[in-house]
Write a protein that binds this DNA or RNA. Sequence first.
DNA 1: CTGAAAGCGCTTACAG
DNA 2: CTGAAAGCGCTTACAG
Lengths: 332, 332
Amino acid sequence: MANRRPTLETVAARAGVSRATVSRMINDQPVAPPSRRAVERAIAEVGYVPNQAARSLVTQRTGLIALVLPESSTRVFSDDQFFPRLIQGVSQELETADEQLVLMLAGSAASRDRIERSAVAGRVDGVMLASLHGTDPLAVALAKSGIPVVSNERVLGPVEVPSVGVDNRGGARAAVQQLIVSGRRRIATITGPSDMIAGMDRLDGYLDAIGDAQEPVVAAGDFTRTSGEVAMERLLSEEPGIDAVFAASDLMAEGALHVLRQSGSRVPGDMALVGFDDITRARYTEPPLTTVRQPIDGLGRHLASQLLHLISDGAVEPQLTLPTELVVRDSS
Amino acid sequence: MANRRPTLETVAARAGVSRATVSRMINDQPVAPPSRRAVERAIAEVGYVPNQAARSLVTQRTGLIALVLPESSTRVFSDDQFFPRLIQGVSQELETADEQLVLMLAGSAASRDRIERSAVAGRVDGVMLASLHGTDPLAVALAKSGIPVVSNERVLGPVEVPSVGVDNRGGARAAVQQLIVSGRRRIATITGPSDMIAGMDRLDGYLDAIGDAQEPVVAAGDFTRTSGEVAMERLLSEEPGIDAVFAASDLMAEGALHVLRQSGSRVPGDMALVGFDDITRARYTEPPLTTVRQPIDGLGRHLASQLLHLISDGAVEPQLTLPTELVVRDSS
DNA sequence: CTGAAAGCGCTTACAG
DNA sequence: CTGAAAGCGCTTACAG
């Protein structure tokens, strides 16, 4: 067929109108019905699709949104499905806005550099940051560059970045309270990474709930299954008095459960166990795991919608917190 | 600072050279040392980053590669980590080529339409297809449009699409042969979806291995854990004579294991069990699962590199098959 | 509602 | 090695 893709010019000539008229049609601006019909027909006949680069050049919009993930993050490629679910939510929202998703993994220093350049080069209309650790220099640099940025957690550092998070603290508090109400006397926690908001807030929720009732018993983890195993082993040997554990992720709870089974502890008889996330497998463990459900796809959707608002209006909630929900199963 | 981003013009003026010279520098073409120094300095001083849209408009290259995933695919958002690992591999390869990844989920008819238009509109330089089912019209349409396309599985339909796959058949064959060698007499299989290459090939591998030694015993599954449970229940009630099961995915093997435990069957004593994938959890099941490892990140890397070749050279292997490897643990 | 024209920010023969 | 100039394919005031 045609050797090169048809342009606006092709369509205009064929329809007997100017390029401006065709352009207006494509952009849903008013066009007289007769011209409209002629143009529609010409478009269909030649199979015209507007060239995005040319459009972007004049509109300064690319129709592209970046999702930046620190590849090193334990969560990104872990078993908890955080990453795919987040993407699912984000995609759903971007779909309605006809924006497309560019995935950028910020693993190495080189890739972080590349991401920063891309963003500054106007390659994308905005950036979503997810699961950052500590005070991330990339987050700071992007925020300072003036490109619209949102984050799934409060950004630590000398910048103001709108964030959409889940109620980590409230969820953790509810989990531990349920343990207290059901009669547990000495409750330990296995924490997430101390440099992540999710890790910090879930620990704070634990501390909120136990209050002065007991001394806090804290074992450090990093959200992974292995870290849950190690922490549980430590708790068993160093804190023989505990009768309940709140693990800040389901993966860690799974690891803890494994260790408990090995050691002959009965769950929930000898030891109650609560996780956080409500991953698919939580209902399949033995016994099924009590946990705190967080709306990851909702997080993705809100993250995207906040960013889209920021891009078009410029106005947006500085901080949005989505509710979490305690799901009681058999492990507590 | 500056109100608008600096352009080539800005840099050229500041360095006292023409725009062409600056452009050549950016594109690594020869430039006399004195000019070079002046330009480098000007770039640094104004913080110049080339505008990608303008570049794309003239070069007809976007630096963007699409990864298209049918959202409905059981594998995309399943627990087997296929999706994140594939992306990891793809990203790694694209990184070296300085291309960026656009993720397109082909869930609805609308999104498929959008994907096709995007590709045709030259929004991306090429497309990777993953985990398609049956004869996918989108795959066919993309291939026909002339845009470079590769797929992670052989594409069924009236088009020629270069593919990069794993040796599903050989892996399945090896798994079943090991069962035979270890003395199992009546081996069943739980299959993947019959409209996916991975499902079809693993079944063929099973059939290869049992040959005429026994009647095939086949229970249909769709790679998910639940389908593995259902299939195992059916096998237990309808095929009491079996002493081994080859499940075409680890998730299905996990489901089967669960059912076996419930029913009091001992693994591997009463029933040997082999999976496929070697997901992280395979080594944590009770007993640890014998399985066939497939190199998912390698798949991603090769998929990307094949596409990059196709885009630049136009030449590429029509079909690449990566080896799989039997990992013997305790379940068989 | 419509068209002529300028301009978005680059790259690339072409001539020197 | 370098510059002047054309051109990539759109959108958008501007004037009518």
